[in-house]
Design a protein around this nucleic acid. Structure first.
Lengths: 153, 153
DNA sequence: TTGCGTTGTTCAGCGTGCTGAATAATCATG
DNA sequence: CATGATTATTCAGCACGCTGAACAACGCAA
C-alpha cells in the first residue's frame, strides 16, 4: 500500500513530473519491444507529414536542439529515420521517416487508441487533457537554444 | 511564435512530461541560487516531520531506491541533510534535516505560496491539481525496487 | 574577398529517472 | 553456528532533459 505520503501537499511541478513518469511507464513495454523510446515517438509523430529539419523537430517537441540531436541519432541507429544534409543549406540535417518508422508510429497510434486503461484514474479525462494542452501551449512558447526574453536593448 | 505543432494531438504522457518540465523550469532560478534541485526539494519536504530512511524517502517520493540514494548524497554534499547508519539496523541510512535544510525548505514553501503566477495558465487550477493527485495516487502505488505484483502465490 | 554576426548541429558535462547487478547486514532455519 | 533468503544501499550504465561551448555553413557588409 502506498501509505504515509500526502501527495496532495506536493508542488504542482512535482505532481506533473511524477504523473508523467507513471503514465509513460505504462508504455515502456510497448516501446521497449520495438526498440523505441518516448522521446523518439514524438519525433516520429512530428515527421508524419513529411521531412523536417532537426531544429524544427526540436521546436515542435519543445526540447532543445541538443536533446533532439541525440534523439534523432538514436532513431537513426534504430532504423526509424533517415538523415541527410539539406543541399540548400548544408548546415541543416533533414530528417525523414523510413518505412519502419512510419510503420511503428502507426502501430503506436493504434495502441494509444486502444489503451486508455491507465487514464481511467482521471475523472474528467477530456477536461484534464485540455488543461494540460493549455498549460503547455502557454508556457511552451519557446524551448530552443536561443531563449532570450528580449533581444532588443 | 510557437507555431506548427498541434500539441493537442500528443499522447497524455508526453503532455504531462512537457508540462512538468515547463513548470519546473520556472523554479530553476530559485533552486539554482540555493544549490538545490527539484528532486532534493521533495526529499526535504518528506523529511520535515523527522528523520527517515532512504527507502522510506524513495517510497514517499515515488522514485527508486537508487535514485533516492543519489539525491540524498547530493543533499548531503550541499549540507542540507545529515546521514547516519541506523544503530538498530546497520543496513539502513537514517537521513535528517540540518538547520540549513530546514531553512531552505521553509523558504521554498514561502516561494511556492507566493508564486503561482505560472499556473495562471490553467483555468480551474484546483480541479486540475485534484486530478493530478488522483492520477498519481492511483498509478503510483509502488515505485520501489521490488515491484512484484503479487508476492503471495 | 575578407570579415563578422547568425544559424544549425554537435560535444561536454551534469541532474534525474530507470533497470540490473553487487555488497553488506539482518533474519529465518537447520 | 553455518546457510540461505531478504532487505537496504550502492555501483554501472543507459535515456532524456538541461546549459555552455565549439564548429561549420550561411549571409551581409565593407
Amino acid at each position: 500500500m502506498g501509505a504515509g505520503d500526502p501527495v496532495a501537499s506536493w508542488p504542482t511541478g512535482r505532481l506533473l513530473s511524477v504523473a508523467a513518469r507513471l503514465v509513460e511507464h505504462s508504455w515502456q513495454e510497448f516501446l521497449a519491444t520495438r526498440g523505441l523510446t518516448h522521446a523518439g515517438l514524438i519525433a516520429l509523430h512530428l515527421l508524419r507529414e513529411g521531412p523536417r529539419t532537426q531544429r524544427a523537430l526540436a521546436h515542435g517537441a519543445k526540447v532543445t536542439d541538443q536533446t533532439m540531436s541525440r534523439t534523432v541519432e538514436r532513431l537513426h541507429r534504430a532504423g526509424f529515420v533517415e538523415r541527410g544534409v539539406d543541399p540548400v543549406d548544408r548546415r541543416r540535417m533533414v530528417v525523414s521517416l523510413t518505412d519502419e518508422g512510419r510503420e511503428v508510429h502507426a502501430e503506436a497510434l493504434r495502441a494509444e487508441r486502444e489503451e486508455p486503461e491507465v487514464l481511467g484514474a482521471v475523472r474528467d479525462y477530456e477536461a484534464f487533457r485540455r488543461q494540460l494542452v493549455e498549460l503547455v501551449t502557454v508556457l511552451g512558447v519557446d524551448r530552443t537554444t536561443s531563449a532570450r526574453p528580449d533581444p532588443r536593448g
